[in-house]
Every structure is written in structure tokens, then in C-alpha cells.
């Protein structure tokens, strides 16, 4: 009699384990609450460009990382609209490069990474006197481009 009860108990435990095993995973899953609509599915090419620091002293070397670009594509780097180099995106649509500001004047620069014309993102950096010299984080890899020959000419309107 006890054996039968034990067997039934085991069966119930097994059944509950099967039924509830998925629920036990709940703490490990980020449950989305957002609506499933076309906005959620529309990210055709909406790339982003990030930089390790927003500002630094002239002579800094900034580390840029682009993501969500078309994969394995030739991407062009622009500084304030002027081309400074090219980098290939990897299979996941990411690209990394360094921007050497040695010789550049203080001021704000818009750095754009663009693949063809259909995927483009811009990030700003500012060169300031008295700031720390920025360097890429350890292990950061990617081609280095120089702003030395493409000095930003600030627009001054004298009234």
C-alpha cells in the first residue's frame, strides 16, 4: 500500500516537473512587454556609431564602433563631410576604426560612417584645450585615420 502511494507520489512529482519546468526558467528570461507591430520589425538599416569618449585634448585618438550596418560592406569615414578613410564592416555589420586628431584644431567635429548612401550614422567629438588626451581602450583594433590634413575650419560670422 505504501509502495503504491510512493509510486503515485513519484508520478505526480514527475508530471509536475514536466508541466512546470518551463516556468522555472522565468527568472532567466527577459519577458518583452512591447507591442508586436511594424515599428518593432522595421529596423532595415538603422546603424549607430559610438565613440569611447565624447571629448578630449587635441592629439587624442578616439575609438569608434559602428554597428547594424550592412554586413561585409565598404564603409566610408567622414569628418565634417570630408572623407578620411574606408573600413570594411564585418559579417555582423560592425566596423571599428580609430581617429587620430593630432594637428587638428579645437572645436566640434561630426564623424560619419556611411555604407553606400543607404546606411549612415554620425557621432560628434569635441577637442578642447585642457582636456585629457584620449586613447583607445586596450585591445581595441581597427584602422587608424588621421585628421591632420583635413583641419576643420570653423565658420565665423562677423557681424
Amino acid at each position: 500500500m505504501n509502495g503504491l502511494k510512493q509510486q503515485n507520489g513519484m508520478r505526480l512529482v514527475l508530471m509536475l516537473a514536466i508541466l512546470l519546468s518551463g516556468i522555472a526558467m522565468t527568472p532567466f528570461i527577459d519577458i518583452p512587454a512591447e507591442a508586436i507591430n511594424w515599428e518593432l520589425l522595421a529596423g532595415v538599416y538603422e546603424p549607430s556609431l559610438d565613440v569611447n569618449e565624447d571629448s578630449g585634448a587635441p592629439g587624442s585618438v578616439f575609438a569608434f564602433t559602428g554597428s547594424d550596418y550592412p554586413a561585409l560592406s565598404n564603409a566610408t569615414v567622414y569628418v565634417n563631410g570630408d572623407q578620411v578613410g574606408n573600413v570594411m564592416t564585418d559579417a555582423s555589420g560592425m566596423a571599428a576604426f580609430k581617429l587620430n586628431t593630432t594637428g587638428a584644431a579645437v572645436g566640434q567635429y561630426n564623424v560619419t560612417l556611411e555604407v553606400d548612401i543607404n546606411a549612415s550614422a554620425t557621432e560628434s567629438i569635441e577637442l578642447k584645450v585642457g582636456e585629457q588626451v584620449v586613447t583607445p581602450p586596450p585591445g581595441f583594433t581597427g584602422p587608424a585615420f588621421s585628421m591632420q590634413n583635413r583641419i576643420y575650419q570653423p565658420v565665423v560670422i562677423a557681424d
Binding site: I23, T26, I29
Partner: peptide, 15 residues
């Protein structure tokens, strides 16, 4: 795996 889990509302994974 997460999509499957969500699709079957967690409950459907074990069974």
C-alpha cells in the same frame, strides 16, 4: 530558445 519559450508561454516547454 527565448522566442520558443515565449511562444508557448513557458508552460509548453517541458511537455
Amino acid at each position: 530558445g527565448v522566442q520558443l519559450w515565449l511562444a508557448f508561454f513557458a508552460i509548453g516547454i517541458g511537455p
